[in-house]
């Protein structure tokens, strides 16, 4: 039986993607253990990895990584299929979708803009899910503005860090060839 040898470039790419997924999952678990600054507020460290994947491998790889990271991360912290998982999945998937859309419209130089759009989408969708499915009281939106301000601050920092790491990886990769 002949088994075709996998393409080397594709194999390396898949291994790199898997390494990024493991890193993102680890960051998800660390964030879950960190003290909370507010309800459902996290610094979005795992989103740095989604942004790096978007810049290095494109939209499809970033979307798959964001989804797989949320499922694996929630499985590891024991919140799979709980309200926390539903909020996390809705926020993470919609943020990834919006970041990919922004990345297609803007140049890859504007990583911080892409990150800001992701951070605001993540926070807003989480609130919408809680208001519609769990708490069902519209005045929980009164808590949204201060948390959006925090999301803007972390979105800016995460975007800057993601751009720095992505350019560094590409620079080192080019230098090693």
């Amino acid at each position: 039986m002949n088994i075709a040898r996998p393409d080397r470039v594709r194999l390396i790419r898949d291994i790199q993607w898997l390494a990024l997924l493991l890193l993102a999952t680890a960051m998800h678990v660390i964030e879950a253990a960190m003290p909370s600054l507010g309800p459902w507020f996290k610094p979005g460290l795992a989103n740095i990895i989604t942004l790096i994947t978007l810049l290095l491998f494109g939209g499809k790889a970033a979307f798959l990584l964001a989804t797989a990271r949320i499922v694996l991360g929630n499985l590891m912290v024991g919140t799979l299929l709980t309200p926390t998982f539903v909020m996390s999945l809705a926020g993470g998937v919609s943020a990834a979708f919006m970041m990919i859309a922004a990345w297609r419209c803007l140049s890859a130089r504007h990583v911080i803009s892409i990150s800001l759009i992701g951070a605001v989408t993540h926070m807003s969708v989480q609130f919408a899910v809680v208001a519609q499915l769990f708490i069902q009281q519209p005045h929980i939106y009164f808590m949204l503005p201060p948390l959006l301000l925090l999301a803007l601050a972390t979105g800016w920092i995460n975007g800057g860090i993601a751009r720095y790491i992505a350019t560094r990886i590409r620079h080192d990769h080019a230098a090693s060839l």
Binding site: R109, W156, G159, G160, I161, H171, A174
Partner: peptide, 14 residues
Amino acid sequence: QSELQSLGTCLRGT
């Protein structure tokens, strides 16, 4: 675009 920049430059944004 992948010219090496410092973290400070990356954090400054466009």
